[in-house]
Nucleic acid binder design. Structure first.
Lengths: 117, 117
DNA sequence: CCGTATCCCGCGAGATACTG
DNA sequence: CAGTATCTCGCGGGATACGG
């Protein structure tokens, strides 16, 4: 794809240049050491429990996982459901908004397969 | 796109789960406050001079711009060419590897248009 | 089991001044 | 013009211990 094709497809409205990169806010939302890996694991298996995520993202700490999940929830990419059983059970799943990131992941993966050895 | 379609298209090799998210290393490469905006500006106009980039990314400092450009160059997303004139002229341009990120930007923009008000 | 509450530390980024 | 050289500061994330 050339930039001209890109511009034509996306529309010029959000392509004003001068620092108004339309991509930046989205990537900001995905920034942080763990967010992408969490979303990725939730793509593979959904829903997942807190402890399950913690196990799969092995060196992650409680604090980091909690914070990342909270931010993802605030951005409506992930949904938290708490079941008041004993012992407590909490499940995290992707929202539609979160699942719609799959084409983005796909594009990135394609690029990675071409350029990452 | 469902995850099953995703898996089929990308191939299961890199989809091992257990923390091996294929997307993460790519986004790591794009991380930093300014890298994406630099790439984006270079999509719009290429090549650009140091001072030109600095003007367009207004509140950026010399240090930040220099560091970001160095890292982008190390990752072979951007090429630096120096002309030993007086006064000095340096031009930055996207490499093919960098230009090939456009489909990624496109996917992200599509998502953004759907979900960012 | 699923977190919160602290404390701590390093690193990315800002500010400012200076150079080939 | 296109950077480099320092210094500083804030905050994201790690470690550990405790609470509902």
């Amino acid at each position: 794809m050339t930039y001209e094709e890109f511009k034509e497809k996306v529309g010029s409205v959000i392509l004003t240049g001068e620092g108004n990169c339309p991509v930046t806010p989205v990537v900001q939302m995905l920034q942080g050491k763990w967010k992408l890996q969490i979303l990725y694991e939730l793509c593979i298996k959904c829903p997942m429990r807190f402890g399950e995520l913690k196990k799969v993202l092995k060196p992650i700490t409680n604090t980091a996982l909690t914070n990342a999940l909270k931010e993802l929830e605030a951005d409506e990419l992930v949904q938290r459901i708490q079941y008041n059983e004993m012992p407590l059970r909490v499940e995290y799943s992707l929202t539609e908004k979160g699942r719609d990131l799959l084409p983005v992941f796909y594009a990135i993966s394609q690029w990675g397969m071409k350029y990452i050895p």
